[in-house]
Nucleic acid binder design. Structure first.
Length: 179
DNA sequence: GCCAACGTTGGC
DNA sequence: GCCAACGTTGGC
């Protein structure tokens, strides 16, 4: 019997492939991180030593993959305030250090402790983020939602993702909205 | 490996 | 404070 042609490869791609794909030399990418300002605000980042902090405590696998495999030093990052009125992008920061193991996962005293994360094979990762500057004015979630060209933005599609990719076009559009 | 129960996030 | 969305856990 002649064999049927091999079925198409199972589709292993995800909507996030682009953000994790190998990049062209010198290519810079864009991201967005969320934080509740009552817990850690953009002002807190600006006031931090060296305007830099470890972005630790992320315990979601998709976000972890962006931290570990996607973000590179020099990438630009929107800083978004969640659970506040209004929820909004308020500032720009940058990746000061690419992904490395989140040591709060190893610390039983830490809220982020995960007994399943072994220092020899870390499960959770963080980056260092350095404040660049506040936006000229915050761009609220409502404004983002009102823009058809931003409809496919990860932030709008997957509300709960705490670290998400931003395309270059989205980045430019949002900067323009901030004036 | 399925899926119900449960917990968390975060907008409203 | 409510609850929708969705990730995680655990029983089977």
């Amino acid at each position: 019997m002649p064999r049927k042609p091999a079925p198409p490869k199972p589709r292993t791609s995800s909507p996030w492939d682009e953000a994790l794909a190998p990049r062209a030399k010198g290519e810079r990418r864009y991201w967005l991180v969320k934080s509740e300002p009552d817990v850690f605000s953009f002002d807190d980042l600006q006031n931090a030593r060296n305007r830099t902090t470890r972005w630790n405590g992320v315990r979601n696998f998709v976000a972890r993959n962006f931290l570990r495999d996607g973000m590179r030093e020099g990438d630009q990052v929107f800083f978004y305030h969640s659970s506040t009125e209004p929820p909004a992008i308020v500032g720009i920061c940058e990746v000061a250090r690419a992904g490395y193991p989140d040591d709060t996962a190893f610390d039983p005293a830490s809220e982020g402790f995960d007994p399943k994360s072994d220092p020899g094979k870390p499960k959770w990762f963080m980056v260092d983020l350095r404040a660049v500057k506040p936006l000229r004015r915050p761009v609220s979630l409502a404004e983002l939602k009102a823009r058809p060209e931003l409809a496919s933005m990860a932030l709008l599609r997957i509300g709960r993702l705490s670290v998400s990719p931003v395309t270059a076009a989205e980045w430019r559009a949002i900067l323009a909205m901030a004036g």
